[in-house]
Write a protein that binds this DNA or RNA. Structure first.
Lengths: 216, 216
DNA sequence: CCGTGTGAAGCTGTTCACAGCT
DNA sequence: AGCTGTGAACAGCTTCACACGG
């Protein structure tokens, strides 16, 4: 059978995509351990999920398994890398060179596996020109648009205070960024064709606080 | 009518709790602006949600609104603070004084609104004794259990490499921590009565990468 | 008349159960 | 026999629509 490949773009849930990323990480471990084959049940046990869910997640993109056997580790890994578009370098700009921004700029996960931070910006003159621990020089925030265009930035990361977040976001979008990871505790105005992912640390803490009072 | 208060602990979804935290933040803004009243529709517009959802979220914990009017801003804010258990100090320990850990240790959201970082630990002798930008001295990781007990830590934050995460987590749990925010890209083994919240930056980036290839 | 509170309907995501391939 | 792929059943979350109270 010719490898049935669907190119859906639609009808696939955010949750499925996030899980694919999780599966991929484990497949890379298995590959390093030279494991040849993995079953949906193996994966399910690992992540406390149902095996049918894993098969369904994968089935969104084709038929990668062999009945009676399971999935070939290397093959499935390669498929996931392609699905998640990790086979091309993704250039990232971080705006906001506070503690979080500088930490992220050389956080291991942000400069491996296809991602590369190409600039760290800030509007504070005192910070501009300084080196981040990762070896990048902090550049002025006013150059955001220019940098995005010249360095072909794919992904923007916002680590500025919430008062400045919307402005930075608008600037990113008008320079052509289509994917943004937002750490500012603000609800950004949405644009068509721009995907935003919010990481709200305060919400996470307050969530945990709730469960301390209401233990289950 | 006597204020009907439910103490559920059960039947309330994680998603509801996360939204309450979001509502609270906006109510604090409204209070500062001296707005007296807010309707579920106002809140819904702000966060691109359905107004019924907001009413349902709040109705889990009592009847806080006035029909035909809306919600009193200050009153609702006070209720949410109590529900989220933010009326008592929550002491937090950060294990892993890498870039992310030190950044978090004086990230604004982590030392305000009821949360306080009481220790930052690391196992690297080169880091122990150093000061974090937030003014805390990095302490040895072997003292984790002792520190948790002596300083009555409520919440643990894990920012160590994934290879060490499970060990740190086990140590936290056996010292009595019941809520953990995990930044390590690992699936931690679950314990009863311990709530874990994972923040996986790599998953977020890969998620965005997917949407760059499959624009919607 | 307006906005809350809420059962009912609708929808989305998960799990079951089994046909079909190896 | 073993495990995938998948329609059908199920569960949980969201939205609708309206009764009720101010």
């Amino acid at each position: 059978m010719p490898p049935k490949r669907r190119t859906p773009s639609e009808g696939i849930s955010d949750l499925t995509i996030a899980r694919l990323s999780i599966y991929l990480r484990y497949l890379q471990v298995l590959e390093a351990e030279e494991v040849q084959t993995v079953s949906s049940q193996d994966l399910a046990d690992r992540f406390h999920l149902n095996s049918a869910q894993i098969r369904k997640d994968l089935a969104c993109f084709g038929e990668f398994g062999i009945r009676g056997v399971g999935y070939n580790v290397r093959e499935l890994k390669d498929h996931l890398i392609e699905i998640l578009a990790l086979d091309h370098e993704r250039r990232v700009v971080v705006v906001g060179a506070g503690n979080l921004g500088t930490a992220l700029s050389h956080f291991s996960g942000f400069n491996t596996g296809g991602f590369r931070i190409v600039a760290v910006l800030d509007s504070d003159p005192q910070k501009i020109g300084r080196r981040t621990p990762g070896g990048l020089t902090i550049e002025p925030a006013v150059k955001l648009g220019e940098i995005v265009r010249q360095r072909k930035v794919h992904i923007g990361v916002i680590t500025v205070p919430s008062t400045a977040a919307q402005e930075v976001f608008d600037e990113m979008v008008s320079a052509g960024v289509q994917a943004v990871l937002n750490f500012a505790p603000t609800q950004l105005k949405e644009y068509p064709n721009v995907k935003v992912r919010n990481v709200d640390l305060k919400v996470n803490l307050e969530f945990l606080s709730f469960f301390l009072r209401h233990p289950h």
